[in-house]
Amino acid sequence: MLRFGIQDYRPSWLNGRDSITAAHGPRLAGLAGLTLQRAWLVWDLDADEWFTDAPVLMDFGAEQVEIDHQKFDDVSITWNTIDPSRAIEDSYFHLAWHAEPLPPLAELPGRALDHVELLEWAGDDMANGSIAVGFDFGPTWLIIFNALDENGFEHHAPAPSYRRHRLNS
């Protein structure tokens, strides 16, 4: 079964910083120094808005990381599996890949990545313990977080409510 009709995408859901670090830490850390080529989002063509339930693609040329959140604390990180030039074949939604469709994303291509952090939410709410992925493009940041069953963005350095875990290769 395809997730929202995205060809070849098979999410692998993980919970907690330790499991994410074990599965993807060195590879995420290895993105440091690479230049972002494109940031892809799935766009709902009927509503003319970001379809936040689908993965976010960060294309660094040599590597493409695909980040997706669901439920309250599930995150899937996959690598080089999605081709955004392929049509999305969903029977319910009218979806397509768009590169940098939101203004804060438009400034990111061409920037070198300084480092990646796993950000653990430390709040007194349902999101406590959920993991966001922070990309430091110095001075610009892109944080892809769990917006309670979908993806969300922040475009600033991590808030004090996050426990920060810098990844090293």
Rank of each mutant, 00 (worst) to 15 (best):
Asp74Glu: 14
Leu14Val: 06
Phe93Arg: 11
Trp121Phe: 14
Leu105Gln: 04
Gln70Gly: 01
Glu107Lys: 07
Leu113Thr: 09
Leu113Phe: 01
Trp50Tyr: 06
Ala47Lys: 12
Ile67Asn: 02
Ala29Phe: 06
Pro26Glu: 11
Val56Gly: 02
Ser19Asp: 14
Gly33Glu: 13
Thr52Gly: 02
Val75Arg: 00
Trp50Val: 09
Leu105Met: 06
Val65Lys: 00
Trp121Asp: 02
Ala54Ile: 07
Leu31Arg: 08
Arg38Cys: 11
His94Val: 15
Ala29Val: 14
Phe72Lys: 01
Ile67Pro: 00
Trp79Asn: 11
Leu14Gln: 14
Ile77Arg: 00
Asp114Ser: 13
Val75His: 00
Pro84Gly: 12
Thr21His: 11
Val42His: 01
Ala39Arg: 01
Leu119Ser: 04
Trp40His: 15
Val56Phe: 02
Leu34Val: 08
His115Ala: 10
Trp13Asp: 00
Glu100Ser: 12
Gly16Ile: 07
Glu49Met: 07
Leu36Asn: 03
Glu117Thr: 08
Trp40Arg: 11
Leu118Cys: 05
Ala23Glu: 11
Phe51Gly: 06
Leu34Gln: 15
Thr35Ala: 14
Asp46Met: 08
Trp79Tyr: 15
Met58Glu: 04
Tyr92His: 13
Ile88Cys: 05
Ser91Glu: 14
Leu45Cys: 07
Arg10Lys: 06
Glu100Pro: 07
Glu66Phe: 05
Asp18Ile: 10
Pro55Leu: 10
Asp44Asn: 09
Ala54Val: 10
Ala106Cys: 13
Ser76Gly: 01
Asp73Pro: 00
Ala106His: 08
Glu120Trp: 03
Trp40Glu: 15
Tyr92Pro: 00
Asp44Pro: 02
Ala122Gln: 15
Arg17Trp: 00
Tyr9Asp: 03
Ala22Gln: 15
Glu49Thr: 10
Gly123Phe: 06
Trp13Gln: 00
Leu113His: 01
Arg111Ser: 15
Ala32Asn: 12
Phe72Gly: 01
Gly33Ser: 09
Pro101Lys: 07
Gly30Tyr: 09
Pro109Val: 04
Asp46Leu: 05
Ala62Tyr: 01
Glu120Thr: 15
Val116Met: 12
Lys71Val: 00
Trp79Gln: 08
Glu89Trp: 03
Asp46Gln: 12
Ala87Ile: 14
Ala112Thr: 08
